[in-house]
């Protein structure tokens, strides 16, 4: 099985897109996942320690 077939089997996009309906809001599941990932990345960026922070020299 080639890489294309492998990824095609794991991420099968050959179907009608799935959508979330919430009142007047309608968005695709893939976009909802992406937005959730962005929120997770944003919160992680605020909370995770930055490597080498203690050893940095302070600039102006």
């Amino acid at each position: 099985m080639g890489l294309t077939e492998f990824f095609g089997a794991v991420f099968n996009l050959d179907h009608v897109g799935k959508y979330i309906h919430w009142g007047f809001i309608q968005l695709s599941v893939s976009n909802a996942i992406l937005i959730a990932l962005m929120i997770v990345t944003f919160i992680s960026a605020l909370l995770l320690p930055f490597p080498g922070k203690r050893n940095r020299k302070e600039g102006k």
């Binding site: 944003f42 960026a45 605020l46 930055f50 922070k53 302070e58 600039g59 102006k60």
Partner: peptide
């Protein structure tokens, strides 16, 4: 500046 050492 030191505060730039943050993932954000």
């Amino acid at each position: 500046p030191a505060y730039v050492a943050s993932w954000i």
